[in-house]
Every structure is written in structure tokens, then in C-alpha cells.
Nucleic acid binder design. Structure first.
Lengths: 137, 137
DNA sequence: GTCATTGCAAACGCTTTGCATCTGT
DNA sequence: ACAGATGCAAAGCGTTTGCAATGAC
């Protein structure tokens, strides 16, 4: 009765890649990476498996400004990220205070089951100082 | 030479509606609202004007989980939001600590020109307690 | 053999763009 | 009249879905 979950080659590939990778990955990036490493997986399958993993709480998601969704292996501990908006370099950071604050504020307004998304976007040391590159408008 | 900005009926309508409205609005909602109130404005025009307003710093944007972009009249002071993921009810909150914390952490990692996005998503009092509705999986 | 899973391609929803027309200034 | 602004419809992009084929159990 409980829909059994089958371990297919494709599902394994998706899970494996996510297990190795530490930062954020978009579905399309993941798909491309899989193909590059020889696995033949359909894009739809990647999306379907990502959705399953998100549902089961194994993945965290983050929607970028342009609307693309990024996925990362869910940390046991809740982390936040400091992302360089030029080179994509990502640093994991922990904000002990944030969690408590979020809960308190949410509670004050009667909100429940609150999740928060906190991401910092900036220019990392390499991109921000020396080598100044045209970043566009 | 500086590209002159013309005050058209449509642009005025968009700006006006945003001026009256306090919360977040998607481009499509805004478009629908304009039509409902008798103004005839093209969807593309709404998007174009929103883009201009965002560029000129008069609007803040927030990308929802489903990828739709929400716009709000830009607050002078930087606010964060507590958004009900069922009914969309939004509460403005200020996180005095967050700003300082963000700057410090970013600095420690050599990041500069850092912006942060912090949003809380939960269920508001109305949606979370009494009237329990099927929310899906 | 069954039924979850896959692949492909078509469908979707939001957003952007090309181009002819319109309209502030 | 000039140049920005508009409207429409088509194109773009990430994502989802229908359906027949495939493969795990």
C-alpha cells in the first residue's frame, strides 16, 4: 500500500551527485553535470526526483532572483549562505541568533510553522577587491 | 540626452496603484487590479514599468517560492517580511540585529557590497489554527 | 507480472521582446 | 515632429505533465 520507492539508476545518480556536492545546484546544472559524467538522465526525471527529495526533507531549496530554484543537500544543522554574486563562491555560515529571533517574531504575530530563508549576496574577496571586472549595468 | 521619462496614463496608473497598496503585489495581480478598476493597460507595459521602478530604487522585489516576483513600494528603512504561505497575509518586521550581523559575518569572510534577503514564511493565526484547510501533501 | 519510474515532447505560467502604432513633450 | 511608451502576440525560460515504454521488485 505505501508506495514503494524503487532504487533506479537515475535516482541513485541524482542522490549521489547531491551527496558529493556541497553548495547549491539548479536542476538544470545538476542535469548537465549528470550527463557530463556519463549518466543518461532525463531532465524531467531530475525534476521529479528533486521534488521527492524536497518533500522528504532531504533537500533545501532557495529561489534565486531570476526565478530559478537551487537545491542543496539539507544540513542537519540549519545553515545560511554567503554567496558571491559574481563567481558563485559560497561560504556556509551559521546564525545562532537568527533562528531564535525568527521564532520569536513569528510567535508575536501568531504565525506558526515558520521557515525562514536568509541568504547574503555580495562580492567575495577575490571578486570585490583586486581584479575589477565589468559586472554589467 | 538623458532619456526623458514621460508621464503616460498607464505609468501613472501603475504608480498610483502601488502608492495606495501597502503589501506585495505580483505583476499579474497588479495588471488584473488595474483592469478591474477600469484602466486599460497591457501586461507588458506593467512589466516594463515595474522594471523601471525597480531600477530607480522605488520598488523592492521578493521572489516567491513558485518563482513569481512580488513588488512592493520601497520602504526607506530596510524591512523584512513575515509572509503567510497560505493566504499571503504579510507583516512588516524590522530586524535591527540582522543588519549588523550580516555585515560582520560578510566582513569576516572578506565579502563586500553585501545585500541580504531575509524572509519568514509561515502560517498566520487565521490559517494555522482554527480553519484547517487541506494544504496538499 | 506489476506498478513505480523514466523519457520525450507538449503544455504551462511568468516574463521578455519585436515591431508597428500611438502619444507626451 | 521626435523619441519614448504602449499593445499585442510571439518567443524564452524554467518547470510540470501526459502517456507509452521500461525496469525494479
Amino acid at each position: 500500500m505505501a508506495t514503494t520507492t524503487r532504487v533506479t539508476r537515475q535516482r541513485q545518480a541524482v542522490t549521489d551527485l547531491l551527496a558529493e556536492h556541497d553548495g547549491f545546484l539548479s536542476a538544470q546544472q545538476l542535469h548537465a553535470a549528470l550527463r557530463a559524467s556519463g549518466h543518461s538522465v532525463g531532465l524531467a526525471t531530475v525534476y521529479r526526483n528533486l521534488a521527492l527529495l524536497v518533500d522528504s526533507g532531504e533537500l533545501d531549496t532557495l529561489v534565486r532572483d531570476d526565478g530559478e530554484t537551487l537545491y542543496r543537500r539539507c544540513g542537519r544543522a540549519h545553515h545560511h549562505h554567503l554567496v558571491c554574486r559574481r563567481c558563485g563562491h559560497t561560504v556556509e555560515i551559521s546564525g545562532p541568533t537568527v533562528e531564535a529571533w525568527a521564532d520569536r517574531v513569528a510567535g508575536e504575530h501568531g504565525f506558526t510553522d515558520v521557515r525562514h530563508s536568509l541568504e547574503l549576496f555580495g562580492l567575495c574577496a577575490d571578486c570585490g577587491s583586486g581584479t575589477v571586472v565589468n559586472v554589467g549595468s
